[in-house]
Design a protein around this nucleic acid. Sequence first.
DNA 1: ATCCTACAATGGACATTGTCTAAGTCAAGT
DNA 2: ACTTGACTTAGACAATGTCCATTGTAGGAT
Lengths: 138, 138
Amino acid sequence: MSDLLERLRGRGWRMTAQRRVVAEVLDGDHVHLTADEVHARAVERLPEISRATVYNTLGELVSLGEILEVSTDRRAKRYDPNAHRPHQHLVCAECGAIRDVHPQGNPLADLPDTERFGFTIAAVEVTYRGTCPNCAAA
Amino acid sequence: MSDLLERLRGRGWRMTAQRRVVAEVLDGDHVHLTADEVHARAVERLPEISRATVYNTLGELVSLGEILEVSTDRRAKRYDPNAHRPHQHLVCAECGAIRDVHPQGNPLADLPDTERFGFTIAAVEVTYRGTCPNCAAA
DNA sequence: ATCCTACAATGGACATTGTCTAAGTCAAGT
DNA sequence: ACTTGACTTAGACAATGTCCATTGTAGGAT
């Protein structure tokens, strides 16, 4: 974690209590938090932190490539601290649980030139949707 | 199109002017409209149609499998009338343009059992993100 | 150690997208 | 043509996110 803080400071990020708290919240083992969940946890440590700051900070961390935005449903965006190892997501349609997964193969290679319409492709997102064991049992 | 109306009627769908108009709007060659775009076009034909009805009707068409919901950005959901031919999406990060594409291969096969965590997987969505020729030129 | 200043934080208004509800309307079967 | 339950309506409400003017402060300069 102090890794993260060091990296950010090294990039000229001005270190404030608010930014530190947001970074620390994302460093826990709780993955895939929404912005408001991050805010709620940040408030526990720094009660006066504002929503706008959390949103701003999350946006900056995304721009810096330190965290990923994940939109698996039409609800709130979620933030994934696991930005340095490429992965995809497996989502339960019932309860919304999200797991990181590592598919084999390269989906980019599956898209022929004739299907690219002149686009320059920068990234591929794959979302597997299904039912988790818990919800299947219920 | 009247295909669609017939199919719906055959399933016991009560046919109203509002539903007919929504179905007709989606039948055009304009793909990937947002709910409010659908509403705007519907209003041109049936000025008193309400937003709620458009939302309801779109939701029903999705449940019936006649159209697909597409969430390529964190903005509004889009509705894709091309529900009967499996396809994925290619999205321009600049202008938001969306193209239907047909990748080769089967992403489901790329996810080993050990990466499924007991989930039953029902669908796979693949989104290719990049820059379209227009935006690349600008 | 103190001062400066550009950058960051605040909070509250605002925007967008979508959902809900109570009341009125109408399609379609009889 | 009547009846009835499904459909539609308008507008309030909810959830998520953005913007802006003001206030605060980190960190370099003195």
